[in-house]
């Protein structure tokens, strides 16, 4: 259900695999996060994603379980990449399947909000003028609080 990996992923392939042999799924929402070439500084040449092996997997599993307890979901797939990534590369994939679209949309949004504030990943950006660790955003914390306490 969840994977933390260096390799790239194919959202189309993952979606096909999730839907394989299923006729009860009425909606699937897919979110892919990509590396931008601008963020805190312009001209980003790439970034390195660090994580805390072990805790990362358990944090992602806990987030998915929390989503499953809040919405009736029929399938969830989360892939987060680590290591060196270049602009345009996909970083994260969240696929959420449900009988109805509302649950799928909301659960996907929820998983991303919680992932950005609770899963132990850190980004270090490489630019033409040096490297820096990306700072956390207050807006991410606000977004996560929309869902109330868990």
């Amino acid at each position: 259900m969840i994977d933390v990996q260096h390799a790239a992923f194919d959202p189309g392939f993952e979606q096909t695999k999730l839907l394989q042999g299923r006729q009860d799924i009425g909606a699937i929402v897919s979110f892919t996060g990509l590396v931008r070439d601008f963020n805190e500084k312009p001209d980003i040449l790439g970034m390195t994603l660090e994580h805390y092996p072990g805790m990362t997997e358990s944090a992602l599993n806990a987030i998915v379980e929390e989503a499953e307890s809040r919405w009736p979901l029929q399938g969830v797939r989360v892939i987060h990449r680590v290591g060196y990534l270049a602009p345009g590369d996909p970083i994260v994939l969240v696929l959420v399947a449900s009988a109805h679209r509302r649950a799928a949309f909301e659960a996907c949004d929820f998983i991303m909000d919680y992932l950005k504030t609770r899963a132990p990943f850190w980004k270090k950006e490489h630019t033409a003028s040096g490297h820096h660790w990306v700072a956390e955003r207050a807006s991410d914390q606000r977004d996560a609080r929309r869902w109330g306490e868990s």
Binding site: G33, L49, H51, Y52, M55, H80, I91, V92, M112, L115, K116, T117, R118, A119, P120, F121, W122, K123, W133, V134, A135, E136
Partner: peptide, 10 residues
């Protein structure tokens, strides 16, 4: 025990 800065994944 791990100490770390706020997370910035996703």
């Amino acid at each position: 025990v791990a100490f770390f800065p706020p997370v910035t994944g996703g």
